[in-house]
């Protein structure tokens, strides 16, 4: 579904992702890596928020290397950034509605589905997003992206800084989203143990390069340590 060919990207002339190639289908694909490995840069590039320095990005066989971010979203790539994934002065309900501006299905039907997936949000419908706790905010950011009915969801460290209760709840939701909605998921994570539990395949990213791409069950601790440069 999403194919990356010899991708190079970064900021202000500094190359962070250095010639990466991978393919992600309808699966949960986890990207692991230490701080600074390039996980956020890779996901933001996939979402077309950062321009490519080189290589190609294909979605469902079509080149999206140069399309604007709103068009990649319209084609079915949903993106949940690590931080600032909400519109703080809009309510929970309004955040979801803004997320649902594209798509053919009835918007309220989609909102109801999100509330079913994250029941806590239903209670907070009229609350401003800026007043939510970290965990509630992540759920809302994820729900907002799901309102677009994406085919592929890019989640950038969704559990960073969350309490263990929320971490468990979030990983359960990831599995549920993939299984019930048929959404392919690219999950960038630091929490290797939990991420590997839900992943089909995994890539260990090291200094902007794919150290290893492997079935989740086959990844060894040595590979992980080496990829993390421990």
């Amino acid at each position: 579904m999403l194919e990356v060919r010899d991708l190079r990207s970064g900021y202000h002339g500094v190359t962070v992702i250095k010639g990466l190639s991978l393919e992600v289908g309808n699966e949960v694909f986890t990207i692991l890596g230490a701080n600074g490995a390039g996980k956020t840069t890779l996901l933001a590039t996939m979402a077309r928020l950062i321009p490519l320095m080189g290589g190609e990005l294909l979605f469902e066989g079509e080149d999206i290397s140069k399309v604007p971010p709103w068009e990649s979203a319209a084609r079915g790539i949903g993106y949940v950034p690590q931080e600032k994934g909400l519109f703080p002065e809009l309510t929970v309900g309004e955040n979801l509605n803004v997320g649902g501006m594209i798509g053919d299905r009835d918007r309220q039907e989609r909102v109801d589905e999100i509330y079913e997936l994250f029941p806590d949000l239903a209670v907070l419908e009229d609350q401003l997003a800026g007043t939510l706790s970290g965990g509630e905010g992540r759920m809302l950011a994820c729900g907002r992206a799901l309102m677009q009915d994406p085919k592929m969801l890019l989640l950038d460290e969704p559990t960073a800084g969350l309490s263990p209760l929320y971490v468990d709840m979030f990983f359960e939701s990831v599995t549920k989203i993939h299984e019930t909605r048929g959404v392919g998921i690219v999950l960038a994570e630091q929490n290797a143990t939990k991420a590997l539990e839900v992943a089909d395949r995994v890539m260990v990213l090291s200094l902007g390069e794919a150290f290893v791409i492997e079935e989740a069950g086959n990844l060894t601790t040595e590979q992980l340590k080496e990829g993390y440069r421990i």
Partner: peptide, 20 residues
């Protein structure tokens, strides 16, 4: 709402599927 969203968080608004 798209305008408000753009005003509050423009990078995120770009990924909403509309040319913000």
């Amino acid at each position: 709402r798209l305008l408000i969203a753009t005003g509050q968080n423009e990078p995120l608004a770009r990924s909403l599927g509309k040319p913000s």
